[in-house]
């Protein structure tokens, strides 16, 4: 009994912090989303007008680009991270640390700095990529900068480390003798991947995938710096509602929709996750 009270006491600071910093903003945003369009007051006169607008007045495009971009980026990152993690795991103790550090290092540099660096790389004409291709191979490519491809490359580039490290953790969860056993029992390499490796590494794949997906939904720097005006992502649309348009209730409604959609993906995935298994190793 006493111990239980002690536990609650220890929990209090964090609980308070989450209440003030996490729960109350969401409550306020949720409340605003139910106010009259373009109003700045929290009243008890509720309306669903903002949500109706969200589904009727051309917000599908930002939703589509954000969710689609997040999905494609997550998939790409997972596909790239799997072989990378397998190689790094196999190299453990033999240069894996150096490669890991090289991949992790960019995380410590400001994202916009990195993206501007990337825009130099992708610039048409005199950019590093286009210039090199033209000088060395006499190949002329059009512009990658300010296209959807540029945004995609930027998203993958920025989020790859967030996928790689959980996947590396997942790969470490595969006992090598299970692979031997599966091979011995007649499984081809493809069957080993499907039946043994992927299921055993699933916790890492799920965490990595979720991280990338959630971060991508909230990302706007890639579209702003590398995409020019080609795509308007959801966060950009929300920002515009709050700032230029001075329509807080509309921005709040869009925010709540994003949170709800994220939850639809995150909670089922988390429910499948055995965190204990990941930590015990």
């Amino acid at each position: 009994m006493n111990q239980q009270r002690l536990g609650l006491l220890f929990m209090a600071p964090v609980a308070l912090f989450l209440l003030v910093g996490f729960v109350s903003p969401i409550v306020i945003v949720g409340w605003y989303s139910l106010m009259e369009p373009r109003s700045f007051e929290l009243t008890t006169v509720f309306t669903l007008a903002n949500y109706r607008t969200a589904f009727t007045e051309g917000y599908e495009a930002p939703f589509f680009w954000s969710l689609g971009g997040a999905a494609v980026t997550t998939l790409t990152c997972l596909l790239l991270a799997w072989p990378t993690a397998r190689i790094l795991h196999a190299l453990a103790g033999r240069g894996a640390a150096v490669i890991t550090a090289l991949i992790a290092a960019p995380i410590f540099i400001s994202e916009s700095v990195r993206l501007f660096g990337m825009s130099l790389f992708l610039m048409p004409g005199g950019g590093i990529l286009a210039g090199t291709l033209r000088t060395l191979f006499d190949v002329n490519i059009g512009s990658v900068l300010n296209t959807k491809l540029g945004v995609y490359l930027g998203l993958v580039y920025v989020h790859f480390p967030f996928v790689l490290f959980p996947v590396l953790l997942g790969v470490a969860l595969i006992p090598p003798d299970r692979i031997d056993a599966a091979r011995d029992l007649g499984a081809s390499r493809w069957q080993v991947l499907r039946e043994i490796e992927l299921p055993l590494a699933l916790p890492g794949l799920v965490i990595g995938g979720l991280l990338a997906f959630v971060l991508c939904i909230g990302a706007n720097a890639e579209a702003a710096i590398l995409g020019g005006q080609t795509v308007t992502v959801l966060t950009r649309a929300i920002e515009q509602r709050f700032s230029y348009a001075q329509d807080w209730p509309m921005g709040a409604a869009l925010t709540i929709l994003v949170i709800a959609m994220t939850a639809v993906f995150v909670f089922p995935a988390l429910a499948r996750l055995d965190l204990n298994r990941l930590i015990r190793r």
Binding site: P175, D177, R178, D180, A181, A182, R183, D184, L185, G186, A187, S188, E195, I196, P199, L200
Partner: peptide, 20 residues
């Protein structure tokens, strides 16, 4: 011959059961 093509089977020291 790769292990999956051999008409042999092994019981491992760790047993290597598929716990999942």
């Amino acid at each position: 011959m790769p292990p999956n093509k051999r008409p042999t089977a092994m019981v491992f020291q760790s047993l290597a059961l598929f716990d999942h």
